[in-house]
Design a protein around this nucleic acid. Structure first.
Length: 453
DNA sequence: AGTATATTATC
DNA sequence: ATAATATAC
């Protein structure tokens, strides 16, 4: 096998990725150099947890492979041709995702490689079923989740590949260090790397999966799978999870399988309709009146910084800012608040989430925002407006989640923390609600009526 | 995977 | 009186 360059996009997506692993293993067995050339990392403070996870993940991978990975951080359009030339590479493998979307950089790299005598391969899909594979009998894509999920289950998925064999690598000789990681808050971030991912999966299957269906909605407890970040960085392949789930029975296994199906479904939607990343799938609902201007900007800032006066919203936004992760239930609540209570476009919130989330995935994030906004594939016959107080009381009944992330409310006991404005002595330093939920809900319903008419 | 209101069940 | 269930938007 000739010398080979492997370019992985910002998301590694190597682990258990059959095509990529086969190519990497073959190259490694021949003693050729394999490389990771990455997009420039977002080094703003906002990306801190993400940069941290990526660097730790790469180091773990390097360690598991004997410490001989050549890792470069830089613009792939420049770095891939440079490295390919330096090692006389005849092949370049690109791990592409989402098909039409995201091909832009690939094409730029491809263009930069023309005339260098290299063969370009696109390999790998970080999904259980590759986007575009599950189709209706007339070959058209599914537009609704439930029929897709049935076809997805019927389609089935390959078994995950085995872990890579022991490999012998040429010594790394690159001097470029990793990007500096911005100062991170003093909280525990999840461990990075394949071993950590598999440990998390085992720990989840050993217990939490039993009550996953309900506990996953409790931000005050550790009831989620915690696997999203590992999926994001390719430390765990969905097929690995599905293979393990096959050995478990029950509603918990069914629920996680369904979540993985959502992930595949939204990637599939993006594959077929790449414009859906930032354009509303339902143009009519997407045309709803939104607010802009200085007052809207102030409200956005209050939302992003966690100062809306609605405790569950503020707790979520502060958790996101602190650790680059937010509980999924709270993601829905905070997203609903931005769109339905503050009347801001969903794209603004989606962009902020992508900027901050360590597990932020284009397809899942943006299509879930469309779901919340009512512009997505899910055509509910009613307008979903999350009530932040009801949701808080229901899913954080004791208020423990709010107290953990909103220190101004730490002294308020029990579920009353979800409506501090009703307390005889509202705590100092915590803002009053910046809008009245009941009034804004009516406003949203009225604006929906405008586009429905 | 929503919310508000009405109805029925349960203490 | 409060909780579970049903229904409409």
């Amino acid at each position: 096998m000739p010398n080979t360059v492997f370019w992985f996009r910002r998301d590694l997506r190597l682990t258990d990725n059959p095509a990529l692993l086969a190519a990497v293993s073959a190259a490694a067995d021949d003693g050729v150099l394999a490389l990771f050339v990455l997009d420039p990392m977002p080094l703003r403070a906002a990306g801190g947890p993400r940069v941290s996870h990526l660097v730790r993940s790469l180091r773990a991978l390097d360690e598991s492979l004997g410490g001989a990975l050549l890792i470069r951080y830089g613009d792939p359009v420049e770095e891939v041709p440079r490295v390919a030339a330096a090692i006389g590479a005849e092949e370049v493998h690109i791990a592409a995702d989402y098909g039409p979307y995201g091909r832009g950089r690939d094409q730029q790299v491809e263009k930069a490689l023309t005339g260098h005598g290299v063969t370009l391969h696109r390999t790998g899909s970080p999904y259980a079923v590759a986007p575009g594979r599950v189709r209706k009998s007339d070959d058209s894509p599914y537009r609704v989740f439930t029929p897709y999920s049935k076809a997805w289950a019927a389609h089935g998925w390959r078994a995950p590949v085995a872990a890579p064999r022991a490999v012998s690598w040429l010594p790394a000789h690159d001097s470029a260090g990793p990007p500096s990681v911005p100062d991170l808050p003093d909280v525990d971030l999840p461990d990075a790397g394949e071993d950590a991912a598999r440990e998390r999966l085992s720990a989840f299957l050993d217990g939490p999966i039993r009550d996953y269906a309900t506990e996953r909605n409790r931000p005050d407890r550790e009831g989620t799978s915690g696997l999203s970040v590992h999926l994001k960085y390719g430390e765990l392949h969905p097929r690995t999870i599905l293979a393990e789930l096959a050995r478990h029975r029950g509603v918990g296994a069914d629920t996680l399988r369904n979540e993985l199906c959502w992930r595949d479904f939204y990637a599939d939607v993006l594959f077929h309709r790449p414009e859906s990343l930032w354009e509303s799938l339902d143009a009519r609902v997407g045309g709803i009146r939104t607010d802009s201007g200085p007052r809207a900007d102030e409200r956005f800032t209050a939302w992003a910084s966690g100062h809306t006066g609605y405790p569950i919203v503020d707790a979520g936004m502060r958790q996101l800012r602190a650790i680059g992760w937010m509980h999924n239930r709270v993601r829905m609540i905070t997203a609903s608040f931005l769109v339905k209570d503050l009347h801001l476009p969903w794209q603004r919130g989606a962009a902020y989430f992508l900027d901050r989330l360590v597990d932020g995935d284009y397809a899942s994030n943006n299509h879930n925002w469309q779901w919340v906004a009512g512009t997505g594939t899910d055509a509910a016959p009613y307008v979903r407006v999350f009530n932040p107080v009801t949701q808080g009381k229901k899913f954080d009944p004791d208020g423990a989640y709010v107290r953990r992330w909103v220190p101004e409310l730490a002294g308020v006991g029990g579920g009353a923390v979800h409506e501090p404005w009703t307390l005889p002595k509202p705590p100092d330093g915590y803002p009053k609600p910046i809008v009245d939920h009941a009034a804004e809900r009516r406003e949203t319903l009225a604006r929906f009526d405008e586009v429905r008419a």
